[in-house]
Amino acid sequence: MSDSAETILDVRDLHTHFFLRRGVVKAVDGVSFTLRKGEVLGLVGESGCGKSLTALSVMRLLPKGAARTVQGEIVLDGENILKRTPSQMREIRGRKISMVLQDPQTSLNPVFTIGDQLREALVRRAPAKLKEIIKQAVAALRRVDIAAPEQRIGQYPHQMSGGMKQRVVGAIAISGEPEVLIADEPTTALDVTIQLQYLKLLKRLQRENGMAILFITHDFGVVARMCDRVAVMYAGRIVECGPVKQIFEAPSHPYTRALIASVPKMTGTRGRLTAIDGQPPSLMNLPAGCRFASRCAHVEPRCLEAYPGTTQIGADHTADCWKIGSI
């Protein structure tokens, strides 16, 4: 990705918190990133690090009454969508920004046919005669490599396999030609060979449409296959962000390093894995300093006192660590 590429989504200092009786869970606590036109940005982290909540905040689909975005800006194509009304948001969703979730089982309504569910999305985009819409639906299914789409539009979700359902979900998500697609662990529920098919499909669609994808995953392998840049999240913040190649070849943040080292490899020795000891901190009671300090091999006093600022490492590579350059 060249630096000059235009920014389509700019998230600045986003804070989304859960408000519970027992206290405030700071699930997203100061997240900033930019997504450029036509690129795939991976958002990687473990469960509970806030990556899915970041996506829901951007879609403005937070669970009602529980979570609230309390601070920050989400600038989509030049406008801060946090200032939009719910009805304006409905217009934006599907056309400018769209989403694919992890479980195709729950993403589709079991009592409607595939055709009905596609039609709903297509009619919203551009009302047309039924015949025309059916033609479009067939074309949309063909685009996501579904064989015999004419028959498939009359079928119900339970008549399809998981991989096929997820492709239908993809077809619905991109039917409005969105500029940004958020994919939240879209292949986690699929078998490995089907996962590879789906990733290839997403990549092809992305090239055809020129849309930008925010790809949320916990799997570095998927990142390597899919993404141009990657942002690593830990306990509510992005700790490192940069081009995929640099992150894999020269990770800077101790967390990123430890995470990549802890994954078993397909080549090389089969000795002991370098594990990360301990657990992530409680999001209700975050430490004052660096959030990774308690598990970090390079910890020193200042790490416990204050959160490190963001250090520029390369042209497009940043990390939040006090000891960049000295470890």
Binding site: F18, L20, V25, A27, S47, G48, K51, S52, L53, P63, A66, A67, Q102, E185, T187, T188, A189, L190, D191, V192, Q195, H218, D219, G221, V263, S282, L283, M284
Partner: peptide, 14 residues
Amino acid sequence: MAVAEQHPPAAPEI
């Protein structure tokens, strides 16, 4: 490396 995180990402520690 795929089936992890079947638990909803909702509020932690419920």
